[in-house]
């Protein structure tokens, strides 16, 4: 399995994602330059965190027009797996690959801390090694992570089980106190209807070694490895 990590001007978690995949997960990985349109035969694309194009206009708004995004959108629309982390999630909503928008945190502060996430859908390629209700400790670092969408679209997300992670407390209770940014229904991560595109504000690539405070981010990568081993066994 090969990962491709996109580097935009202003990406700053691209090396973290690269290092997590190469040195901890142990899979092949290459950087993908924003000006290129070549995905280098990657099986999974990571849109990393950062401040693409200085977050000018709106977070992720300029990045969606980068040449590499044309290929990423095509790849995603033909079923390719794409993960957007933090700013990458914002790029995915701006590009229309995921519904909704990420607006300013309700308290207006940049939040950089460990949070707890409840896995609310484990029937995905990204969470298959988890059980529903599992609590993962993974850090956030954002000023605009407040997930917003219209009531009707939130209902669609709920009905289709597209909400993969919700902010919760240490015991797995999803409540207002554990919501770090004001996201509707404590939404921390969603996927598209087809299940191949995942966007999440927390940073799994920053939770891959005990030295960093948690290894729970590995569950996501292990799930992907499981998904790919099934693909290769099945031919």
């Amino acid at each position: 399995m090969k990962f491709g990590v996109v580097t935009f001007p202003g990406s700053n978690c691209d090396y973290d994602a690269y290092a997590a995949v190469r040195h901890v997960v142990g899979e092949d990985v290459e950087f993908l330059w924003h000006k290129s349109n070549d995905l280098l035969n990657s099986d999974v694309i990571i849109l990393p965190g950062g401040f693409t194009y200085g977050d000018y206009l709106r977070s992720g708004a300029i990045a969606k027009f980068a040449p590499i995004m044309e290929s990423v959108i095509k790849f995603a629309n033909s079923g390719g797996r794409v993960i957007g982390i933090c700013n990458g999630f914002q790029v995915l909503t701006e590009s229309g690959l995921l519904p909704g928008a990420l607006i300013r945190n309700d308290h207006l502060r940049f939040s950089c801390k460990y949070v707890y996430l409840k896995v609310t859908n484990n029937q995905t390629d990204y969470t298959s090694v988890c059980k529903n209700g599992d609590v993962l400790k993974i850090p956030i670092a954002h000023g605009e992570g407040n997930y917003y969408n219209f009531d009707g679209d939130i209902k669609t997300l709920e009905d289709n089980n597209q909400i993969v992670f919700r902010y919760c407390d240490e015991n797995g209770d999803v409540n207002a106190q554990s919501n770090p940014n004001g996201s509707i229904n404590n939404i921390a991560g969603i996927m598209n209807k087809e299940g191949n595109v995942l966007g999440m504000m927390p940073h799994p690539e920053r939770a891959v070694e005990q030295l960093l405070g948690s290894t729970d981010g590995l569950r996501l990568f292990e799930s992907l490895q499981t998904a790919f081993s099934k693909v290769s066994i099945g031919g």
């Binding site: 708004a61 300029i62 928008a101 607006i103 917003y148």
Partner: peptide
């Protein structure tokens, strides 16, 4: 396409 985000 660019100046506004029609979602919000």
């Amino acid at each position: 396409k660019l100046l506004s985000n029609p979602v919000i």
